[in-house]
Amino acid sequence: MTKKPFRALVSALISASFMAMAPATVQAADTTVLKLSHQFPASNGPDGDFRDQLAQKFAAEVTQKTGGSLKIEIYPGSSLMKTKSQFSALRKGTLDLSVLPLAYGGGEVPEVTLTLMPALVQSYEQGLRWKTAPIGVELEKILEAKGMKILTWVWQAGGIASRDKPITQPEHMKGLKVRGGDRSMDLLINGAGGAATNLPSSEIYSAMSTGVLDAALTSSTSLISYRLNEVAKSVTTARGKTFWFMFEPLLISMEAWNRLTSEQQKVVTEVGASLEPFAVEGAKRDDQRLAEVYAKSGDTVVDMDDAAFAQWVAIAKETAYKHFAENVKNGQALLDMAQAVK
């Protein structure tokens, strides 16, 4: 007689448990979660890497504006996948989102090497004008055909960290092992008499500390975030002239994009575009802060003048520009469209 009431009680408790869980289950089923991976250090405080901050802002605003129906999980410091795997993963849809130096994908999509072509972009304002110009429309078409879509246009100027003397003129690079960032920069380095070494910015510190590299070209933010001042004796800043401008957009894979509702697509597009002023502000701030950080470490801080810049441009046109025009499908047409943006 005592077993029936006990069984009834257990049955009632189980039923109540399922009823309590039901709303959460429905909510979980209605929530889409996307993973965002990038190579940059996690941001800690206002002086942290603005690219991680941009990812965090994007995630927070998307969640808020979709009422929690879309959530973004962020994996900084290549903690989800290796840096060089992210471009391919976006194309295949095995990664949903990334803040990615687009030129890293030049081996798979040669056209994207245009986004780190030496001296092609010479200011943030010029870079952002690509977005509505024919070159930007064509770039977006190419990327979407290859499996990814631009949400936030992010350009970054960069400088040169050296283990020895400052590098401002091409002759200063002769005989040095230098990291460029992609094929275009490698051609420039080789053309100046250096020996180009290709590796992601997250690996520069180790390479410079062990002597694998004598110098490295990378963005101002990476020169700071990866603490290259600890292994460098000098830096050439991007405060004035620089031939190094890289496109590092926030990208979404087309597979992830197609899983979103039309309303969610509208939100991620609007939020992505709204963060572009934040990206410009962060990049410009780091161009100035770079000098302060390296000076505080006792490193020599220099800027590039117009005469030196002109020398680099001449070498770029004979090496990187020529190679792109001759070896990339529609290369000359793409170069012409990019050069038309003033």
Rank of each mutant, 00 (worst) to 15 (best):
153 W>H: 12
153 W>P: 00
153 W>E: 07
153 W>S: 04
154 V>I: 10
154 V>S: 02
154 V>K: 01
154 V>L: 02
154 V>W: 02
155 W>F: 15
155 W>P: 06
155 W>S: 07
155 W>Y: 15
155 W>I: 04
157 A>Y: 02
157 A>F: 09
158 G>N: 06
158 G>T: 08
158 G>K: 08
159 G>F: 08
160 I>C: 14
160 I>Q: 08
160 I>D: 02
162 S>M: 08
163 R>S: 15
163 R>M: 12
163 R>P: 10
163 R>N: 12
164 D>V: 08
164 D>Y: 13
164 D>E: 15
165 K>M: 03
165 K>F: 06
166 P>Q: 12
167 I>G: 07
167 I>H: 06
167 I>P: 08
168 T>C: 05
169 Q>D: 14
170 P>D: 06
170 P>S: 08
170 P>F: 09
171 E>V: 14
171 E>I: 11
171 E>Y: 07
171 E>F: 11
172 H>W: 06
173 M>C: 04
173 M>N: 05
173 M>W: 07
173 M>T: 05
175 G>E: 09
175 G>A: 09
176 L>M: 10
176 L>A: 04
176 L>E: 06
177 K>F: 12
177 K>A: 12
177 K>S: 13
178 V>C: 02
178 V>Y: 02
178 V>P: 03
178 V>N: 05
178 V>S: 04
179 R>P: 01
179 R>Q: 11
179 R>S: 09
180 G>L: 01
180 G>R: 00
180 G>I: 01
181 G>T: 02
181 G>N: 04
181 G>F: 05
182 D>A: 01
182 D>E: 05
183 R>H: 01
183 R>T: 07
184 S>K: 01
185 M>W: 03
185 M>P: 00
186 D>S: 06
186 D>R: 00
186 D>P: 01
186 D>Y: 00
187 L>H: 01
187 L>P: 00
187 L>F: 00
188 L>E: 05
188 L>W: 05
189 I>Y: 02
189 I>Q: 03
190 N>T: 04
190 N>H: 08
190 N>W: 04
190 N>A: 11
190 N>G: 15
192 A>D: 02
192 A>M: 13
193 G>C: 12
193 G>I: 11
194 G>W: 10
194 G>P: 04
195 A>E: 14
195 A>H: 14
195 A>L: 12
195 A>M: 13
195 A>G: 03
196 A>P: 15
196 A>R: 03
196 A>E: 05
197 T>P: 00
197 T>L: 15
197 T>H: 12
198 N>L: 11
198 N>S: 14
199 L>R: 13
199 L>K: 08
200 P>T: 13
200 P>Y: 12
200 P>Q: 10
200 P>E: 12
200 P>V: 10
201 S>V: 13
201 S>Q: 11
201 S>P: 10
201 S>W: 09
201 S>K: 07
202 S>D: 15
202 S>Y: 11
202 S>P: 10
203 E>I: 04
204 I>V: 15
204 I>P: 00
205 Y>A: 13
205 Y>K: 13
205 Y>C: 03
206 S>Q: 15
206 S>A: 15
